[in-house]
């Protein structure tokens, strides 16, 4: 077990390093001259000034040296200074990551809170009209692009109900009500598709477990169908659902550029988008490293949770 975790952590670090190197090199391939972009304002800018700016940004060093410096600093949690805002990347991310995490968590809660009952019900009433209509509902949820849903919500709630979400993001500690009011709609728009995915996954994995030998045994002992489903089958069908949730967390962390923009939420998505567009190398790299780290961690946690849910799973 410990050996397994250690090996996974080492693999994780390797993956993060690979990601960083890949992104670092790709960034430099992308057209766009950072220094000229920064000094685009200065009409008579001299070569000395350009060189000085390049040196200030650390871009005068050989590529390998820049990469090694970044990797070394990143190891201590220092991702450098943003080219655009001149702020430490670590503090920019520290400001935005919790917002994205909160949005993701709320979306996840919504999708689990709605998806699990839906999936259970559909499995319990398999192939009934209820199953069929629940399926259409959940698939419809998966089929509506969430950015479109967000746009419709923000426009028509204002027109029909004279209501619009708060304009300024407040952290939960500053103003919990305002925070939740603002996050509710985007979380809903995001959560709807997660709900559909979870309901579907739960339904099919439940059905499979229900046909397994051990459930047959329980049933044979005379337990009522509902008990079988809720106590024995659910636990055993959670593995694929967890693995689904694990992957979804990864998706959420990348941020949701369009929804963030519609609901004025300063999260990771808009940050990454702007940073790539403006060739803000340190911010892109910092975001990628953090994303990679969280992704690796979440997947490890999910894999370990399998063992908790299903003791048959062993780690080799």
């Amino acid at each position: 077990m410990i050996e397994y975790v250690v090996r996974r952590v080492l693999y994780g670090l390797l993956v993060i390093a690979l990601v960083t190197v890949f992104v670092f090199l790709t960034l430099r391939l992308i057209p766009g001259d950072v220094v000229r972009l920064q000094l685009a304002d200065a009409p008579g800018v001299t070569q000395e000034q350009l060189d000085a700016r390049a040196a200030a940004l650390g871009l005068d060093q050989p590529l390998v040296a820049q990469l090694l410096k970044f990797l070394g600093d990143a190891f201590t949690g220092d991702f450098g200074i943003s080219f655009q805002s001149q702020q430490p990347v670590t503090s920019i991310i520290a400001e935005r990551l919790p917002i994205t995490l909160q949005l993701g968590l709320m979306a996840l809660i919504i999708s689990i809170a709605l998806g699990v009952p839906l999936g259970l019900l559909a499995a319990y009433k398999q192939n009934s009209w209820l199953d069929q209509s629940l399926r259409v509902v959940s698939v419809a949820g998966l089929s509506i692009p969430n950015f479109w849903l967000g746009l419709l919500l923000v426009t028509y709630l204002a027109i029909w109900f004279a209501w619009s979400p708060p304009l300024v993001y407040r952290s939960p500690t500053e103003d919990l009500v305002s925070n939740l009011t603002q996050m509710a709609l985007p979380a809903l728009a995001l959560g709807v598709s997660g709900m559909a995915a979870i309901a579907r996954m739960l339904r099919s994995s439940l059905l499979e477990v229900m046909r397994s030998n051990f459930v047959r045994t329980v049933r044979a002992k005379g337990a009522p169908e509902r008990t079988v489903l809720l106590t024995h089958a659910v636990r055993n069908s959670l593995v694929p659902v967890f693995s689904l949730i694990g992957v979804q967390v990864g998706g959420i962390l990348g941020g949701t550029v369009i929804l963030e923009s519609i609901f004025a939420i300063p999260g990771m998505g808009s940050m990454i988008f702007q940073a790539v567009q403006m060739r803000d190398y340190p911010v892109v790299l910092g975001a990628v490293v953090v994303f990679g780290a969280v992704f690796v961690t979440v997947n490890l946690v999910v894999d370990l949770l399998y063992g908790v849910i299903d003791p048959r799973i062993r780690y080799a």
């Binding site: 426009t155 204002a158 004279a162 209501w163 708060p166 304009l167 300024v168 519609i262 609901f263 300063p266």
Partner: peptide, 19 residues
């Protein structure tokens, strides 16, 4: 001054008297 990137959202806020 609130930073609201989306035009539709800005408009909605003006309409509902938030700005």
């Amino acid at each position: 001054i609130s930073i609201v990137p989306d035009q539709a959202a800005s408009l909605a806020a003006f309409r509902t008297g938030q700005t």
